[in-house]
Each structure stands twice: as C-alpha cells, then as structure tokens.
Amino acid sequence: MTDGMPEMSSLERTALYKSLGNPLRRRILDYLGRHGEANSTVLARELGESSGTTSYHLRKLAEQRLIEEIPEKSGGRERWWRGLPFRHTTPDPATMSPEEYAAAEQLALLKIEADTRLFRRAHEEYRGPEGWAQVQRSGTWMTKENLHAFVRAYHELLDLYGHTREDAPEGARHVNLRFYAAPEPVGEWNGEPTGP
C-alpha cells in the first residue's frame, strides 16, 4: 500500500519500482528534493543530460505522482516541476508477481548500497550526542503487535518533528533517516528455541 494514496496494483507497483530504480530518475528526484524545483533545462545542465531526456523522465515521474508541475511558473514549452510527498510500504513478497518481485529486489539492492554509504557517513560525521549526525543501535524483546505499533509510532514521530521543504523553519536541514527491524533468526541453541 502507498500511504495516503489509493491501493496500487501489482503492475503499478512494478512500474514504480522500475522508475525508482532508474539511475537518472533517482538523480532527478534527489535534485528536486534538495533544490525544491527545476525545469528540464536546469536538470539537463546540472545532471549532464539533454533537455529532451530530462523532459521525458520528468513526464514519467509525473505520471507516477512522484512530482507535479508548478502551474504558476510554467508557460509555453517551459514547464517547472517539484517533488511530491511520498511514502510507500512494500507488500509481502509472497503476494508479488515474479516481475514485481524482480523490480522490487533490484530497487532494494540499490537502496542497500545507498544506505550503506549513509551509515558510513553517519559514523564518520558523528560529533557526539549534540551533533547533526546521530547513530543509534538497539535491541529489545517485542511481540509482532508491539513491533507494528512501534513502526506506526515511528511514522507519527516523523510527522510530528519533520517538515516539508516549504514549511521548514530557519536552520532546518534535510536529514536522511532509516529504520530497520529484524528479529533474531529462529533456531535452537542447546535444544532450546531461540525465536518465536
């Protein structure tokens, strides 16, 4: 399910994962996230592509409701774009078609590479508990219901403390946050179960 949006079909999710896995589209989304808005000419110059290429990918991103045109800045052939808020929860892989699963897996591998770089940067840039870079690692016992409630609370905290680019107070910076939770593997140790 895509949070705040209608339920997506397997075909729509497959297209979404392929789009998010496209290197140029990822760079366009990153640029819009950092700078707020751009047109195909600006993106072509900044990303080293032709304006025809960036224009094509902008239209594709708009079709998937990842970006939108800025009507008050657009006119004639010049169209300006901005990113849209987006949050997506990937469904159970067992419910995916083979093509959807392959696209989701490819996107996940790209995310893991990016997240590994972010993890290293957070450690390198850590300047104590009052700095911008923060690293927290925890472990605790939870039921599945506890974990699901925790994830909902995590999203509520993001909504409570986070801001859109337009509403961010002075001094705010874009901060990359990641959340992972995985139970210990199910197995046995000395004949005793180690998982649920």
Rank of each mutant, 00 (worst) to 15 (best):
T53S: 04
F86I: 00
Y101W: 07
S50G: 10
G76C: 09
S55T: 12
T95V: 10
T143M: 13
P85T: 00
E100T: 07
G48L: 10
P71G: 09
E99H: 03
G33V: 02
P129L: 10
A94Y: 12
P129C: 05
R77V: 12
R127H: 08
P98A: 00
S51W: 13
H163Q: 01
A102V: 00
P85L: 01
K73G: 09
G75T: 06
H88P: 00
L110V: 02
V135T: 14
L84V: 03
A168R: 03
R152C: 09
T53P: 02
R45S: 08
E166R: 03
L61S: 02
A133K: 06
A44W: 11
G36L: 04
H35F: 03
L109T: 01
K144T: 14
Y161E: 07
E49M: 07
F86T: 02
G33T: 05
P71W: 10
S97E: 11
T53R: 06
K144M: 13
E100S: 03
S97R: 09
E63A: 13
F150L: 14
R87M: 10
V135A: 11
T41C: 07
A102N: 04
P98R: 02
S51R: 13
E113T: 13
Y56K: 11
H123A: 10
E69R: 15
H57E: 14
P71L: 13
L110G: 02
P93A: 13
S51Q: 14
E63R: 15
L158E: 09
E166Q: 06
L43V: 11
E105R: 12
L107G: 03
L157C: 10
G128K: 02
E49K: 06
A104W: 00
Y101M: 05
H35M: 05
H123N: 12
G36M: 04
E46L: 06
H148M: 11
R120Y: 08
L110K: 02
T41V: 10
A168Q: 01
L160W: 04
E145Y: 09
E69K: 15
I70Q: 02
W141D: 12
A44H: 12
W81L: 01
A108W: 00
A172F: 01
R121Y: 08
L84F: 02
S97H: 07
G48A: 07
Y56H: 10
A102K: 01
T54K: 04
G83A: 13
S51D: 15
W132K: 09
H88M: 07
Y101S: 04
H163G: 00
